[in-house]
């Protein structure tokens, strides 16, 4: 099976965000980058499918700055076979639609049986690229899967529905699936993998993005929360808490 995984380079989740000089993006100096955590589930799922089948190829694709080779190299070290970097010099042009278009243009030539994406990238938190990509490729799509089985050209997947329900979907391949926590435990790249990754190919292509369809007018930090307040110690503080919840917060 030919599996394509889309990943994104994002700031580490413990990053303290500062507004950049342009007022519409963050200050990226001294920001450490990681593979967006939901994408790691997609990489792991692809590797498990390939290992179970004993055949096939896993290609990792990313749209991002030239430095994204670091994240792609990590995927190769985990066990992916090759990677494609769609180099994008102008981050301002990158929105969900232009990203999906660039990924679709690349993936349509890769003859994929299955395309996996994380359910959302933890920078812009939009949760749309997988679905838009499926629309552009004309493929079925199921989002936020937490269980995946593939047999005979079909996938059976589970996702959380409304009100604590679990939905099971039967999907004809090729398809685009987006992954969430619970699907698997992403592996760490071992030393052997890291060495092997050095010899694996990363193809670099210049991504020609259209202008973004959505305009970011401004980026700002959220208003600070009220100062925290300790109202007491031990179970005896419960009476005061009840009074405050009733009279001040009026939430009871």
């Amino acid at each position: 099976m030919n599996i394509v995984v889309c990943i994104k380079r994002v700031p580490a989740t413990d990053t303290r965000i500062k507004v950049g000089a342009d007022g519409t993006s963050i200050d990226e100096t001294q920001v450490e980058s990681i593979i967006s955590p939901y994408d790691e589930f997609a990489v792991e799922a692809a590797l498990q499918l390939k290992e179970a089948a004993g055949a096939g190829e896993v290609t990792v694709v990313s749209l991002g700055p030239a430095e994204t080779t670091k994240e792609l190299r990590t995927c190769l070290a985990m066990g992916a076979d090759k990677a494609v970097l769609l180099k994008d010099g102008d981050a301002a042009k990158r929105d969900a639609q232009t990203t999906a278009a660039a990924l679709a243009a690349c993936i349509s030539g890769l003859n994929a049986d299955l395309v996996l994406c994380g359910k959302q990238a933890v920078d812009r938190d939009q949760g749309q690229v997988g679905t838009l990509l499926a629309a552009k490729l004309g493929l079925p799509c199921v989002t936020e899967i937490k269980k995946l089985e593939v047999a005979d050209g079909k996938a059976t997947v589970e996702r959380a529905g409304d009100g604590g329900t679990t939905e099971t979907w039967n999907v004809t391949l090729p398809a685009v699936l987006t992954t969430t926590k619970g699907l698997n435990e992403p592996r760490y790249a071992g030393l052997k993998g890291i060495m092997a990754a050095k010899k694996k190919p990363i193809e670099e292509v210049d991504a020609a993005l259209d202008d973004a369809h959505i305009t970011v007018k401004s980026l700002e930090l959220p208003p600070p929360r009220r100062e925290g307040r300790i109202i007491g110690e031990g179970p005896d503080a419960v009476d005061e808490l009840m009074r405050l919840l009733r009279e001040e917060a009026k939430v009871l």
Binding site: P11, I17, D125, S218, E220
Partner: peptide, 22 residues
């Protein structure tokens, strides 16, 4: 229409707009 939405898990907010249907 201007949409205000959290990014970076709510560590920042962006105000976005589009021309035509949003």
């Amino acid at each position: 229409v201007v949409a205000r939405r959290p990014v970076y898990a709510g560590k920042a907010l962006v105000n976005v707009s589009a021309s035509g249907t949003l």
